[in-house]
Simulated assay, not measured.
Amino acid sequence: MGTTFVSMTESTSEGEIGFWMRDSILELWLRLLALHIPEPTSDLEMVYKIRNSWLLASRGCFQGCVPHDLSQATATPVGLQVVKEAISSLMDALADAPALLNGPTLNLLGIDGAFHGEFETARLIEVGRAFEDLLAGKLTCTVESTDWMPGSPQ
């Protein structure tokens, strides 16, 4: 089971702020997040680029380096707004979701591999809070910090 470092910068260095995540959880998060990007009302290439990037990254074929492209997605005010609105929309939906999401239902999302058993919604909410804190500059974790992985069972 691979892990990926999630940050808003492109290169990984010791002082980089972010957090590690298990690939399978990051892929699930990105798939759901992509589905919470609304259809643009005008030809906004950035919206399509972010959605398509996350749909590819969430496919389930990247081990140890899921290309979340958060640095590119948040590099412009439009992109940052798209990301923030998608996170807000998904977090609202998760607040109303059942406490447990079953594997067969998650398997309908088109992610390679399979979810077995139930997945706690609270784990996705924890991931959402981590993304919100990263965007707000509230995190102090670096690439060397491995004791906290949002969404991972405690």
Rank of each mutant, 00 (worst) to 15 (best):
F115V: 01
D147P: 00
D133C: 03
G128L: 03
G117F: 12
K84A: 14
P98C: 03
A86Y: 14
M91T: 11
G110A: 03
N107L: 05
L100P: 00
L101M: 13
T142E: 05
A99G: 07
L134D: 03
L139N: 00
T76P: 13
C141V: 04
H116Y: 12
L108G: 02
V83C: 15
V83K: 11
G137W: 05
A136L: 01
F115S: 03
D147R: 10
G103T: 08
E144R: 12
A99E: 15
I87L: 15
T121F: 03
E144D: 12
S145W: 01
M91E: 09
G103R: 07
L106W: 05
P104N: 07
G79M: 05
V82S: 07
F119N: 00
R129A: 06
L124T: 04
D92W: 08
L100S: 08
L109T: 03
E132W: 04
G103F: 05
N107G: 06
P98I: 02
G113D: 03
E144T: 07
Q81T: 14
G79D: 08
G103N: 06
I111V: 15
L139G: 01
I87S: 03
L80N: 10
L134K: 07
L139W: 04
A136Q: 10
A130S: 15
S89F: 02
R123K: 14
A86M: 11
A93P: 00
G113P: 00
D92K: 14
V127R: 04
D96H: 12
T76F: 09
L108W: 00
P98S: 10
P77I: 15
T76G: 13
A86Q: 07
E120C: 10
A136N: 14
T142M: 04
R123E: 01
V143P: 00
E132D: 11
V82I: 15
L139Y: 03
M91K: 10
T146W: 08
L101A: 13
R123P: 02
G128P: 05
G103V: 04
A122L: 13
K138H: 09
D133N: 10
A95E: 10
A93T: 11
W148F: 11
N102C: 04
L134Y: 05
F131L: 12
D133R: 12
A136F: 01
L135F: 02
P104Q: 07
P77D: 13
V82F: 08
E132L: 11
H116G: 09
P104R: 09
N107K: 07
F119G: 01
L109V: 02
Q81H: 09
V143D: 01
N107I: 06
A136I: 00
D147S: 10
E85Q: 15
L134H: 07
I111D: 02
F131C: 09
F119W: 06
L109Q: 00
L106D: 02
V143Y: 10
E132G: 05
S89V: 00
P77W: 12
T146I: 13
E85K: 14
T121I: 05
V82L: 09
I125Q: 15
M91W: 02
L94Y: 11
S88H: 14
E85W: 01
I111A: 01
L94E: 11
K84Y: 00
